[in-house]
Design a protein around this nucleic acid. Structure first.
Length: 577
RNA sequence: GCGCCCGUAGCUCAGCUGGAUAGAGCGUCGGACUUCGAAUCCGCAGGUCGCAGGUUCGAAUCCUGCCGGGCGUACCA
């Protein structure tokens, strides 16, 4: 269904075409803007692009086209300099927009534009030697949100995780536990199980400072692991279980889920086979020591090692195998890797190598690269202990939310304070992490994210809760069959309607750009306009019961759109907070 | 050195494929609760869009060069 903008684009286009036969653009290319002042109109069309073809000044074109369109149209067209400003005849747009929200409900704003497109998204990818940290939270937030946005555009999305459960770093925590653990368990120490494992990873660092043989013993352990030594495998399984159980708890709390989980320990071997095939194809070569290389110097990517002389594999080798396996499991059109920007080089190489191996789908692989999360004090460094633990941060946010609830004397209205506090914490976190463009490094200010003032997730939740509160007080839904939307004629009401009508464009853009920030800023803008409306207008207290009915209807539809936004950016909807 | 990314208000960030006077939030200051939830709203102040060229009717946006910062350039992941 065409929205107001599309209809206007077509009108402008056909008007321009009627006085020029050499326009080489399409109606979709017509630029629509919002006039700088609302008095000027609802939409603006600059005429600069047609000046050359018509060999007239944009000012002349604007006035000519405006006149042509005004002749036979309910909307008003006003030429202001080189712009045509359009004031919409509101009645039908108001009613059409609200009816559409009512009909489509929690699908409003979503589309089928990418229907049939199979998109696999990889994100999170924890190591099994320590719990999640703040960087993972950005990754998870992005991965989950982008996949929801793509689904909202009709795509068939599969979310996958890859657990990095093998390698020297895993052996380090295993070794420290073996030597220092004394048979303790997360239960015996009353610790969350991934934190328990993480403790031994830190212990290893201390150990290796005093004992220079520690590194060597860790390497020996890796060799034993590769050989399938029974005792080592048993320990490895135990510790992986602990970490993964703990990480899953965090996923659960933060609303993250996967359709399929891959384990590096299960996929890394297949990478080796692919490399051997690649040698036969002549894509790779073996040097005199037996090391396998790929030469990408022709495209300025250097030479990279794929297999060590001893036959063991590398990161690149594993990712190669994993990608090929995945395409075999589920033949995607696109595979999006949500991975930090520091790995850009790695993915360039990976994609190039896959392409040289002859996989056509390699050209549709995409690295959704995101910047680092830093603290106001500076960089997070594990060595200096400035890494922000995901669970700790979340617990701190929840506890702040709880204090806020108590301080504002809201506790008596809330059934489950713990649950509500966590939902507020989650909205604060997700909104903060998603509202910065992914490509940029960002500074996470815990204090600011906790303030809940201004442009934040809790603000959005609050606006939702206020609407629910109005509806509760009203006691029933608006009478949808008889509601007279033409009574909604204030500018605040019109602003809300226009905003609601623009939602589908936002969802489309967010999907195209893989950027949830379009949705976060839209949601804030919508909530803010509602808030202003709420202050300017008494929704329920009015003698005219038809007007009350219409306003309640409007507000119900605003709530629907807010909820649809929330579902895309990880903001839990709260009826009461 | 080379490659990629970033540089917009005191701070944190928006600004779509170039378009009318560059916008928010926080912070500062000043207003608004006997009225639908003040986790709110309204207002004031705050900018040579890193610098210099170029393309264009028009540049925060595109191109080039410089300056400043980050990341990468491992037989680590």
């Amino acid at each position: 269904m065409d929205n107001v903008k599309d209809i206007l684009r077509k009108k402008i286009f056909s008007a321009v075409s009627s006085i020029a036969d050499n326009i080489d653009s399409k109606p979709e290319d017509i630029v629509v803007e919002t006039p700088p002042k609302p008095e000027l109109g609802d939409y603006a069309f600059p005429m600069f692009p047609f000046a050359k073809a018509l060999r007239k000044s944009p000012v002349q074109i604007a006035s000519q086209i405006a006149e042509m369109l005004s002749a036979d149209d309910a909307n008003s067209y006003q030429a202001t300099g080189p712009y045509i400003n359009v004031k919409i005849k509101r009645d039908s747009v108001v009613s059409d927009t609200l009816r559409q929200v009512e009909e489509e409900g929690d699908r409003y704003g979503f589309s089928n534009s990418r229907s049939g497109e199979k998109i696999m998204l990889e994100f999170s990818c924890p190591n099994t030697n320590k719990p999640l940290h703040l960087g993972h939270l950005r990754n998870d937030s992005l991965g989950e949100s982008v996949s929801r946005i793509l689904k909202a555009n009709g795509a068939d999305v599969k979310k996958v995780n890859l657990i990095n459960d093998r390698g020297i770093h895993i052996c380090k925590s295993m070794l420290a536990y073996k030597e220092l653990g004394n048979g303790t368990t997360p239960e015996s120490e009353n610790m969350k199980s991934d934190h328990f494992v993480g403790k031994y990873y830190v212990e290893f660092t201390n150990l290796s400072k005093q004992d220079e043989k520690a590194e060597e013993r860790a390497r020996e352990m890796l060799v034993k692991w590769e050989k399938g030594d029974e005792e080592t495998i048993k320990l490895w399984k135990q510790m992986n279980r602990w970490t993964i159980d703990g990480v899953n708890e965090t996923y659960e709390k933060t609303g993250i889920s996967f359709d399929k989980v891959y384990y590096e320990s299960e996929t890394y071997a297949s990478g080796k086979e692919e490399v051997l095939k690649g040698i036969e194809k002549g894509v790779f070569y073996k040097d005199e020591k037996g090391t396998v290389w790929v030469d990408l110097e022709d495209i300025n990517l250097d030479k990279k090692v794929l297999l060590r002389a001893d036959g063991t594999s590398l990161y690149l080798t594993q990712d190669l195998g994993t990608a090929i396996k995945r395409h075999g499991d589920w033949p995607f059109e696109t595979l999006i890797y949500v991975v930090a920007s520091e790995q850009q080089y790695h993915f360039k190489v990976l994609f190039e190598v896959l392409s040289r191996l002859g996989y056509k789908w390699a050209e549709n692989l995409y690295h959704l690269s995101y910047g680092m999360v830093n603290l106001p004090e500076g960089k997070m460094k594990s060595r200096e202990g400035t890494v922000v633990d995901a669970d700790d941060l979340f617990a701190e946010l929840a506890s702040m939310a709880k204090n806020e609830i108590i301080e504002k004397e809201r506790a008596e209205f809330i059934d489950d304070i713990e649950d509500t506090s966590e939902k507020i914490a989650l909205s604060a976190l997700n909104y903060y992490l998603l509202s910065t463009n992914p490509t940029k490094d960002m500074i996470f200010n815990p204090k600011e994210s906790l303030s809940f003032n201004g442009n934040t997730g809790p603000y959005l939740q609050y606006m939702g809760a206020r609407i629910v509160s109005i509806l509760r007080k009203f006691g029933r839904n608006a009478d949808r069959a008889s509601v007279d939307t033409s009574l909604l004629k204030t500018d605040d009401e019109w602003d809300l309607i226009k905003m609601i009508g623009a939602f589908s464009d936002v969802v489309e853009e967010a999907g195209r750009e893989y950027n949830p920030a379009s949705v976060t800023s839209y949601t804030y803008e919508l909530a803010k306009r509602f808030s202003k409306y709420y202050h300017d207008v008494q929704i329920l207290n009015n003698e005219d019961s038809n007007l009350v009915e219409a306003r309640v209807y409007l507000v119900e539809m605003v709530l629907q759109v807010l909820k649809n936004c929330f579902s895309l950016i990880g903001i839990p909807f709260l009826e009461v907070m």
